[in-house]
Write a protein that binds this DNA or RNA. Structure first.
Lengths: 337, 337
DNA sequence: TTGAAAGCGCTAACAA
DNA sequence: TTGTTAGCGCTTTCAA
């Protein structure tokens, strides 16, 4: 059908094994020979057959991304996927995507998945990244994996960013603008993101000498509706906050909806901040001040780290990628501090 | 390493070939034998090795999704991916995702892609679905493909939905509310979506007996900023529109931003409608009236159709999937008609 | 540092 | 309807 390794070997006047060595970056090939073989590969436009390679080498060259079944078009997952694909580019590896419902017992179903796809490595995102039983099973199966934003120590390779510091930075900015009563709509229990962002909020208050007022913190679940509900509770307080920091953008949008429903203007009557920098945070009016969650970077680094650990044997230390705060118009000096 | 087809054959007391026939749904296996073999497969927890299968069968069991490099987290692409993955579930097929920059000459690069991945089928979305040279090259290479929302007749298998009718429905609704001067921010030239939605807009006006006023139609490029710019132009007209229908949600959000910047209220002073039903359309305030683009369905049907054409030989007729209009608060009776 | 030969696990021809 | 045999294209022993 097409060009095979044998054709390259003939063209270069060597054995197929030597071509194979070049293909796999085996260092024990003389430089001159390597150059000649590489020239033949280009000349014949040779591309190795992935199936034959996997079969003979007992490797799939597959990296599987396990994520939660995104109910709505989740830009988080999309960006992650983009990063994962970027990391695979230029390597012999390919990505396999697999949405898994968080409600399912993944620790039990993972065996079937691994048997079917035989991935060389896995990348897990929350909530799966926080599933201790799942990680343990993967350890038992001997499948290398990396996690993204996991809160478990158990994960040998984890990538994330300093969500706590980022949240503190947002809240410190609100303080600097003159806000003293700052509300917080917290994220879903069990997610690292909830704890880190809430802690960042508290850090900034403490640093500013503002007493923590638990009546200004309400629970949310990262969904729009819970942001609305949270704002309702906070704005009904005898002394309502002049600013609300929501643990993610979807909830911040809910806060804005509720504020508008009460005839409040943003940021005049109420400053609002979010977290994630989803597309909606740019599209909504006014633009939402938020933390850019570096999803692509996270996906890219997660893949690179786990592949490196396969190559080099030693698992690399957990990684931290940089983040950035997006200052937009939704936060301003309070009208009535 | 693990259970092989030979083990199943031994267990069931048949030849490997017969097991293979069962695996591949070959009808020429007696029912009783089939049942026995299937029992053995379950008993041994056998899973075929995909690489060996591909190599021997000269098929990759891969469906490649070629989409444009999404600059921002595109919910369109994400939803499509979800649909594609859904369609692969329960089949031996897997999806390979490949973002391709629309600026690149894909028709020239497709050979390398096909040689590397050897996909059994391709699914193309705009703008690639509108790339005539690309489709021609695929025809030459003999790779089956389906397109999504392509405007080219050339594509034998195309899935889409009636965008023209959906747009007309939205505009008819504005008319029914009492609007007579309705502006339109059109999509990017060359996209089917631009033409279909613009035509739908004109259809609705004609049906309502409202003369088409070209000063109320401005060009956009599907991006937020072009929605703002379009609104600026339209609202600066001597007799500005009381409603604006943007060809997608991102531009509709831009229209809203510009309206707010002028102190207009929505929908009191200006009704706004979009198209696509992106996450932002739900999160923005007021909620945006828009057409739900059935991306998952499109992705799912595109895969199913092309796989069916591989099985049955005959390409199925182009498919139309249903859509739905999302009525939200951004469109209402005009305050000053 | 390089090469020869033996599979990896499956399917496709062909035969029975 | 079922079984036998020969590969698919590559990597891996092992030897040179």
């Amino acid at each position: 059908m097409s060009v095979r390794i044998e054709d390259v070997a003939t063209h270069a006047g060597v054995s197929t094994k030597t071509v194979s060595r070049v293909l796999n970056g085996n260092p024990s090939v003389r430089a001159r020979l390597r150059t000649r073989i590489e020239a033949s590969i280009r000349a014949l436009n040779y591309v190795p057959n992935a199936s034959a390679r996997s079969l003979a080498g007992n490797r799939s060259y597959l990296v599987a991304l396990l994520y939660d079944n995104p109910m709505s078009g989740s830009s988080y997952t999309m960006e992650l996927i983009v990063g994962v694909l970027q990391a695979c580019e230029g390597t012999p590896y390919n990505a396999v995507l697999h949405p898994f419902d968080a409600a399912d017992d993944l620790a039990a179903r993972i065996d079937g998945f691994v048997a079917t796809h035989r991935p060389d490595a896995l990348v897990l995102v929350p909530p799966h990244a926080n599933n201790a039983a799942l990680l343990q099973r993967l350890d038992e199966l001997g499948v290398p994996y990396s996690t993204i934003s996991s809160k478990l120590r158990q994960s040998r390779i984890n990538v994330g960013f300093d969500e706590r510091k980022a949240a503190a930075e947002i809240v410190a900015h609100l303080v600097a603008l003159g806000h003293r009563r700052i509300g917080h709509v917290a994220g879903l229990q069990g997610h690292g993101a909830r704890t880190w962002r809430l802690n960042g909020y508290r850090d900034a208050l403490r640093k500013a000498g503002i007493a923590y007022d638990e009546s200004l913190v309400v629970d949310g679940d990262f969904a729009f509706a819970s942001g609305m509900a949270g704002a309702r509770t906070l704005l009904d307080r005898p002394r309502p906050p002049t600013a609300i920091f929501a643990a993610n953008d979807d909830m911040a949008c809910g806060v804005m909806r509720e504020a508008y429903a009460r005839g409040l203007s943003i940021p005049g009557d109420l400053s609002v901040c979010g977290f994630d920098d989803t597309p909606a945070s740019r599209l909504i009016s006014p633009g939402l001040t938020t933390v850019h969650q570096p999803c692509r970077e996270l996906g890219r680094v997660a893949v690179e780290s786990v592949l490196q650990s396969i190559r080099d044997g030693a698992p690399p230390a957990p990684e931290r990628v940089p983040y950035q705060v997006q200052w937009r118009a939704s936060a301003a000096v309070p009208r009535n501090p």
